[in-house]
């Protein structure tokens, strides 16, 4: 794929990065449209963090090239870093300083005038519910509060693109949900492009308009979660009941519209190749002695799609 002239925040063309004999990124080509939350999904060690380092111009690629906000990552890293915000693997906060001092430092780095700096700090800390604790040393804060502060820092200078490397990793469910909700609200109110890496599929499903799935440095799929669903699996029917015998399952598997059948306890998942009525399938099951209690038509979660993509690749 060549680098086309589009309204893309990020354009990556055949990007490859080796660390000695290890290929961390393998010919990645991708476009990230402006103004959306883009999810970059992959298991640990799949090359997500390396991609962010390359896009920020912190590392040079072994092969290929990338543009961020129209700037070449190798030649114009300074311009990229001036226009983007980043929350990397670690929150990167000065824990012995107050929350306000942490933001003050990054405000000075981005040369925000004193008045604007103060009002922006107040605006962000208020939005994240941290304003009352602004004088506390960060070391006393919970991990969730630290992550929120780190996100506020990334947004401080109103960047048009923000890189968030697993922003909810290591947080408990409550803190992760709070961070996720704040992120969704900020993405909407600030209108920034967010490049979000995660291996939390629920997070990606909730926040991202487009997702890319990466494994061992190679891109497996990219698109809207619904597009990926269509590409990897059809509709799904959950049947709850009793008597799911092997004969009944074999009958179902023999039907041309059925792609796969999974049974667990009193729950049967039927994956269909195309959207069709399920009445003939239910009749088949009842005829085979199954007692059907409930039928739920739904679609595969992003997590299931992710696992399917991983299985296909393996």
């Amino acid at each position: 794929m060549g680098l086309a002239v589009t309204d893309a925040a990020i354009r990556i063309d055949n990007l490859t990065r080796d660390f000695g004999s290890v290929r961390a990124l393998n010919g990645l080509s991708l476009e990230v449209p402006s103004g959306i939350v883009f999810g970059f999904l992959g298991p640990n060690g799949s090359g997500k963090t390396t991609t962010i380092h390359l896009l920020l111009g912190l590392l040079e690629p072994t092969n290929g090239r990338a543009e961020v906000l129209g700037f070449d990552t190798v030649k114009q890293g300074d311009a990229i870093r001036a226009r983007t915000g980043a929350l990397l693997e670690h929150a990167g906060l000065y824990e012995q300083l107050s929350a306000e001092a942490n933001l003050e430092f990054y405000g000075r780095i981005h040369r925000l005038p004193a008045g604007e700096r103060q009002s922006r700090i107040k605006e962000l800390l208020t939005q994240f519910g941290l304003w009352e604790r602004r004088q506390d040393r960060v070391v006393k804060w919970s991990r969730g509060m630290k992550q929120k502060l780190a996100i506020a820092r990334a947004l401080l200078h109103r960047p048009s693109l923000v890189f968030l490397d697993e922003p909810t990793a290591g947080l408990d469910v409550v803190a992760a949900t709070a961070v996720r909700e704040d992120l969704a609200a900020l993405a909407a109110s600030e209108g920034v492009t967010i490049f979000l890496t995660t291996h939390n599929m629920a997070e990606a499903e909730k926040l991202c308009r487009r997702v890319a799935v990466i494994r061992q440095g190679k891109l497996l799929a990219v698109g809207h979660p619904d597009e990926l669903r269509k590409r990897t699996s059809g509709p799904r029917v959950e049947i709850i009941g009793r008597g799911f015998s092997q004969d009944a399952l074999n009958l179902l598997r023999g039907r041309p519209e059925v792609a796969a059948v999974e049974s667990q306890d009193n729950r049967l998942s039927v994956y269909l190749r195309v959207p069709v009525g399920v009445a003939p399938l239910i009749s088949l099951l009842v005829g085979a002695g199954v007692e059907v209690e409930e039928i739920i038509k739904d679609k595969a979660s992003l997590e299931e799609i992710f696992l399917m993509l991983m299985e296909e690749e393996t």
Binding site: L58, R81, A86, L88, E89, H90, A91, L93, I109
Partner: peptide, 9 residues
């Protein structure tokens, strides 16, 4: 804190 500092301008 170094990598975040390096990711700044």
């Amino acid at each position: 804190t170094l990598s975040t500092l390096l990711a700044s301008r």
